[in-house]
Design a protein around this nucleic acid. Sequence first.
RNA 1: UGGGGGCUCGUCUAAUGGCAAGACAGCGGUCUCUGGAACCGUCAAUCGGGGUUCGAAUCCCUGGCCCCCAGCCA
Length: 565
Amino acid sequence: MSISEGKPTTTDFIREAVKEDLASGRFDYVHTRFPPEPNGYLHIGHAKAILIDYGVAQDFGGKFNLRFDDTNPVKEEAEFVEAIKEDMRWLGVDWEDREFYASDYFEQLYQFAIKLIKKGKAYVDDLSPDEIREYRGTLTEPGKNSPYRDRPVEENLDLFERMRAGEFSAGARVLRAKIDMASGNINLRDPVMYRILHAEHHRTGDQWCIYPMYDFAHGQCDSIEGITHSLCDLAYESHRPLYDWFLDELEIFHPRQIEFARLNLSYTVLSKRYLKRLVDEGHVNGWDDPRMPTLAGLRRRGVTPQAIWSFMREIGVAKTESVVDMALFEHHIRKDLNLHAERRMAVLDPVKVIVTNYPDGQVEHLEAINNPEDESAGRRQVPFSRELFIERDDFMEDPPKKFFRLAPGREVRLRFGYFITCTDYKKDESGRVTEIYCTYDPETRGGYAPDGRRVRGTLHWVSAAHAIEADVRLYDRLFTKEDPMDFDAEAGEDFTDFINPDSLKVLTGCKLEPSLAEAKPGDRFQFERRGYFCMDPDSRPDAPVFNRTIALRDTWAKVRRKATG
RNA sequence: UGGGGGCUCGUCUAAUGGCAAGACAGCGGUCUCUGGAACCGUCAAUCGGGGUUCGAAUCCCUGGCCCCCAGCCA
């Protein structure tokens, strides 16, 4: 799949810059990369970065690398590498054979460090972490030089080699760049290049006990791979002078870094740290919980990659830090599903209807349209019989004026079925309606009235004898607050305080039309008048489970809300 | 108060010195065998103050507000 398929020619400040670089001869090819750290799952915010990286490469006929920035063995796991690759494949991204790891370059990075030591541009520091922080100064005061800053080159070389050999404990020493402790840019105040970590790395095992800091690895990795445009988060803007310094001192290929604003979405959190807390503290059922904004969660929820791409295309690329309305994402989810999801009938909160004048034991197979938006989706048969289920909220004993559904004496259409008129109903002791009695008009088979009479309401239904039972999980926004991160930590508040208690409702005993017996996990449908649903992997052959991706727009709910005030 | 970056309808994005445009949301309507979809209409913005110019969202000056940086995280 090409992510630019059907895309109107669009541009943005990054593409303009790339265009200029090509025109000026700064570069004569384009090569980008997506550099995730394998310490968690990818989320919708990463999809934006991926689309930009991959999209720019595609637009300019360039190449795209997937590179795992795995420089911190204590946080990274092979499980995350696999999950990230699966998510990227699902998005339709093709990195061909260019799957790399920062750890592939550990030896080369080590040699880069040696080179800087020899140039007198790096030194081994014996200060403790606390001391390093004190010496760094503050935002408004300059830092001061470490007493170890002017160690002779030979001593630095010796110490650094012994750091690699494992002679020292974690935290005992670090390698630092010798830049400027008085710089207004704190990233330039002799940043740490290497630290000692006696930890097992998911790829290099115990081969190393010193690991490069991200800042000493990222730019050089891009350089080694011949990346022309290092596209990244605004957060790295103030690191760019440091990357420039390393690249220039090392005298190696110099990519151009361009920063853009990360995605923020209302009613959710988009930071691995907080998503990890939701998982670890059990607020959700794992990284792929359908309420999570992770790609794994969205996939399980039933969101399509196409919906994600069209959403990304619409929000654009800029440097303005913004919060995109969740409603816009939901719009794109519905737009894609409306076009492609086949319709089925499913009654989520069933109440029985008995068609008193329909012959007992008779079954008719009526033709239903699979997708009114796509004729090629074809038709299917749905069985009709004397006893049916309809939604409990499609019947009212004493309906208000604008209620177009079933009520005593009212006639409605059963979708693709018959017109029925309610003649009576039965309630139990608690006042709950248990059975609704109707008569049908045999002349209206298929849902058309030969005399041209009209009904206001059309209801979905399933034949009681033919229905299959299912669990349905109704998902809603994970947070009730637009910005869950807007809390007062000092007052003891936490973002978890705003978790929507109704973000998951499990419905059992839902009645589905029999054709759904053939559905497979991952299949997506529109349950008519209810919303879009996706079969969950938890399903068993005799116990299907469906997740609600998103409800249909419901203007009746709006009318009802206004009436109630 | 050091360094870096950003301010256009409620929200996101366009307009590259020449009619401030589109999408979402909202509101109103048409149509409909999904109270869906589609369609039509409507509301609605250039952070403030100066300046340059025939003409400024855009250029200049000057205030304001917001975000990022003080991990041996990325």
